[in-house]
Each structure stands twice: as structure tokens, then as C-alpha cells.
């Protein structure tokens, strides 16, 4: 356990880490596998009043109320109509458990830290907020997403 934690933190240079890659539209993203609790199919969510557009609502995850974040909307893409083929990645973010709505999960990648390239300087705020690095896999570009900022920030909203 302690060892996997240290790979999550990426403390050791060249340490191995596992990533789950998924698809939103034509783009590919990945998150650290240690943050992922489970992957499940899409079920209709109960809408929440006064929620930001990227919060689809809440669903019942074995008795717990789980908010669903439409990752496409959150990352600033056109969010498509959800169908049964959509997938929810249940992720642990800090103390909270959140469902991330994506189009499909594609792969599990095992990479070393040095494969992950730093995010190039771009003007996009979304990139600055979420993208932690880029990977090139078989000619495809996969963005590594940091989940800390996925949920709306209470303090920012209130201000």
C-alpha cells in the first residue's frame, strides 16, 4: 500500500504508475488508477437545483449519494447526448467520491514518470486547471488529468 501511494505521488523519479485512459469525443485522457474506485454503466441522474452545468445530478451508489460530473462539459467540450454506452468512472477526490461521466474507458497504461511530458504553455484556462501532463502512446496524444479541481469549489462559488 505504501509503495503504491508513493507512485501516486510520483515522488520517485522513474517510478512506475498505472493510468486509466478514457475517451471523450475524439480526445483521449487518463487519470491515475489509484484514484479510481470502480467503473459502472450510466444510469439516469437526479438533477440538482442551482448546480453548475457540468454537474449532471446525483445517483445512488449502493446507498451513497454520488454526484455525477460531465467531464466533457467540465473540460470545456461540447457534451454529447448520454446513452447506455456512456460510462461513469467512480473516483475518490480528497474526502469525496465523485462519478465522472465519460464516453468510454479504453485502456490501462503502465508508464514511468519520465514518459509523461509537461503540459506545453497554452492559453487555455482549462488546460492549466486540469491537465497535468501529456503522454504519447502509439501516436495518440493522451492528456493526464488531475482531479483535484473537478468539483466546483465552494469558496469560489460563494464569493
Amino acid at each position: 500500500m505504501t509503495q503504491t501511494h508513493s507512485t501516486v505521488a510520483g515522488a520517485q523519479a522513474g517510478g512506475l504508475r498505472e493510468l486509466i485512459s478514457f475517451r471523450i469525443g475524439a480526445q483521449e485522457f487518463c487519470v491515475d488508477i489509484m484514484a479510481v474506485r470502480e467503473i459502472r454503466g450510466w444510469t439516469a441522474a437526479t438533477a440538482l437545483p442551482q448546480a453548475p452545468p457540468f454537474v449532471r445530478g446525483v445517483i445512488n451508489l449502493r446507498g451513497a449519494v454520488l454526484p455525477i460530473v460531465d467531464l466533457a462539459a467540465r473540460l470545456g467540450f461540447e457534451s454529447s447526448e448520454t446513452t447506455d454506452r456512456n460510462v461513469i468512472i467512480v473516483a475518490q477526490i480528497g474526502q469525496q467520491v465523485v462519478g465522472l461521466l465519460v464516453d468510454a474507458v479504453s485502456d490501462i497504461l503502465t508508464v514511468t514518470d519520465d514518459v509523461i511530458q509537461p503540459t506545453p504553455d497554452v492559453a487555455s484556462d482549462t488546460a492549466k486547471l486540469f491537465v497535468r501532463g501529456l503522454l504519447a502512446v502509439d501516436g495518440r496524444m493522451i492528456s493526464l488529468i488531475g482531479l483535484e479541481r473537478v468539483m466546483p469549489d465552494l469558496e469560489l462559488e460563494a464569493a
Binding site: 437526479t46 440538482l48 442551482q50 445512488n60 446507498g63 449519494v65 465552494l154
Partner: peptide, 18 residues
Amino acid sequence: KSLEANYQQVPGVAAATI
């Protein structure tokens, strides 16, 4: 069921249930 546990307080909503 608490909404705040995984989300936040929502004005007009006291809690959730299943």
C-alpha cells in the same frame, strides 16, 4: 442521505434519499 458528504449544500434542498 447526506448530499454534503460527496457534494455540497444545495439551497432549497435539505438532504437526499433513495
